[in-house]
Nucleic acid binder design. Sequence first.
DNA 1: AGAAACAGTACCTTTTTGGTGCTGTTTGCC
DNA 2: GGCAAACAGCACCAAAAAGGTACTGTTTCT
Lengths: 169, 169
Amino acid sequence: MLRITKQTDYGIVLLSLMCHHPERLFNAPELAAEAGLPLPTVSKILKLLARDGLLASHRGVKGGYSLSRQPEAISVAEVIQSLEGPIAMTECIDDGPGECVQEGSCPLQANWQVINMAVRQALEGITLLQMGGPLPTRLVQLGRRAAPGAPGAPDAQVEWPAEAAPASR
Amino acid sequence: MLRITKQTDYGIVLLSLMCHHPERLFNAPELAAEAGLPLPTVSKILKLLARDGLLASHRGVKGGYSLSRQPEAISVAEVIQSLEGPIAMTECIDDGPGECVQEGSCPLQANWQVINMAVRQALEGITLLQMGGPLPTRLVQLGRRAAPGAPGAPDAQVEWPAEAAPASR
DNA sequence: AGAAACAGTACCTTTTTGGTGCTGTTTGCC
DNA sequence: GGCAAACAGCACCAAAAAGGTACTGTTTCT
């Protein structure tokens, strides 16, 4: 029901832990213990994140994983896409053209694409640093995509001022 | 993976069909035929939508379903919530407090709530009328929630000007 | 050489989704 | 009054996805 999987949830937790020491090397058992998750599960997640280049892996004794980029350069969207594939709210989005029989005559598809892009862009604007950091008081500002074909400015994505955090944590 | 279910997809299709004649009474076999979907499935979906008040049902011969409100007063979010429960991107959102062991010490939960609310508000701002109608060129503008506690204006939700639609349909 | 740690794959279990069927109730029409 | 059309509410089954575990292989430090 419009929900990320547990795997993704765990993935974000793990990455958030790693954010506290962006340069450090963490091994799987260590992260599993710290997150309170079973080792095989943690291991599986880390492999996927490494495969997609979000984590750098170092093999051998004294090996482990480290963030491949700075925490502020890794978005929640990337984590989701690594752990559960492309962000597509309906089938007709990531299925190639030709799947839906209504193809072309369906006004819904185009609109789902718009909605989908809005959600994706919102998640792209949220970094790991923000995720584990201070709670924003204002919200993601979606899309604001310019008219298609107008290659203007890179289309302001997200506004997430790190203002004073409320006391709710 | 961050996707609405087929049931919800079908539900939006059905409601969109009904939007063309907002006052009319449609019966299930008729809608099934028009949408090209199996009758039992359509029937199930319509029941759910009626249960939650999105459709008004009329029993007996010559019965059927009609929109309970004008198309522009029914949001995509309502349809989703009717057909697949509350919009909650993580478990810790719709589970009551006390489920997550990290409770209170978890900075992620608060941030997921923010993201979740952003997505929900975006979907709330999209009406059935827009969904079946002209394709917007600009995007949903999420949230922009004022600082909590400040009961100011009703917090502009969404900006969706019905400008010229591109030729992509 | 041995051990620690990542890599990849395969497998099984559980949950969710998708879809169907059946029985009951309401209501228009003959 | 009775029949038939149409909604209401379950209950059920099958397929797919998610969740989780195990095993074998490769790399690299000591």
